[in-house]
């Protein structure tokens, strides 16, 4: 097994409240892993811990052997963890393509002098960045709206644009926070196909938080279930569906409602 991310005994306390407790996770290269649980279970907190927005009060995290605890958000992103946000955080005033170009810092190797004199190196890098941004937008079906203002896009397109922007930074691990939120069944299934496609194309590992059970069960290789900050189950979708405590904590509610 080729582990890309290793989290051990991760904990986060806000004052006296334990948001995440003894969370451990091994992600295998190239897999899609689901993180599910009721609202307030600590899923987004785990994303925020992994991306350096919060700092953990206990535990260790490493990406391909590199320690992540205590690093700044930008540094973790540079090391290869990309993410989207549950409450979309686009550069709303800028154009769609500029949102993607903004994230292409890794492809801009030129220095300030190159920028001031628009040297050949600057032109080469910039041309490459624009081209790649256009390719990413086409891939997500946003090629036709690349000059629109990002804030003016419909909700679903904004979620897609966040994924395009995250991909522009060339991550090895992509964290998706409720990518299917606000999508109908058809759009969700389209998203499933798309996530599979990008994983393969960019050789990605994906960790996703999602409430649409159809999406999670369809796409995930493994699933971790959280409740009140604690891991209550970890396994392949079939095991999780069959697990008694999961049904009690989470799935049970959904089934009741659906029936």
């Amino acid at each position: 097994m080729n582990s890309i991310l290793s989290i051990k005994g991760l904990g986060k306390k806000f004052g006296g409240v334990c948001a995440v407790d003894e969370f451990s996770l091994e992600l295998e290269q190239g897999t899609i892993h689901g993180l599910i649980g009721p609202n307030g279970a600590g899923k987004t907190t785990i994303f925020n811990l992994m991306t350096g927005i919060y700092h953990p009060t206990a535990g260790t995290m490493a990406l391909r052997g590199t320690n992540l605890v205590g690093l700044g958000s930008y540094r973790i992103a540079q090391l290869g963890i990309g993410r989207t946000f549950q409450n979309i955080r686009l550069f709303t005033q800028l154009s769609v393509i500029d949102n993607v170009v903004m994230a292409s810092g890794v492809d801009a190797t030129y220095g300030m002098v190159d920028a001031i004199f628009k040297t050949r190196r600057y032109q080469r890098d910039e041309a490459k960045i624009r081209k790649r941004a256009r390719e990413l937008l086409d891939l997500l079906g946003l090629g036709g709206v690349s000059d629109e203002r990002a804030g003016a896009l419909p909700y679903g397109s904004q979620r897609k644009l966040e994924i395009a922007r995250a991909l522009a930074a060339r991550p090895v691990l992509l964290l998706l926070d409720e990518p299917a939120a606000g999508m109908n069944e058809e759009e969700s299934m389209e998203l499933v196909g798309f996530i599979r496609d990008v994983r393969k194309r960019f050789d990605l590992t994906v960790l996703l938080i999602e409430h649409h059970m159809s999406v999670v069960m369809e796409i995930c290789d493994r699933i971790t279930v959280l409740d009140f900050g604690k891991t209550i189950c970890n396994g392949i979708p079939k095991e999780v569906q069959a697990n008694r405590s999961v049904i009690d904590a989470y799935l049970g509610e959904t089934t009741d409602r659906e029936n």
Partner: peptide, 17 residues
């Protein structure tokens, strides 16, 4: 511009704000 527009997102794409 990224710093001005959205600091959290800027950091998330690797910009040292």
């Amino acid at each position: 511009t990224a710093v001005r527009e959205q600091e959290v997102a800027a950091e998330a794409v690797g910009i040292d704000t």
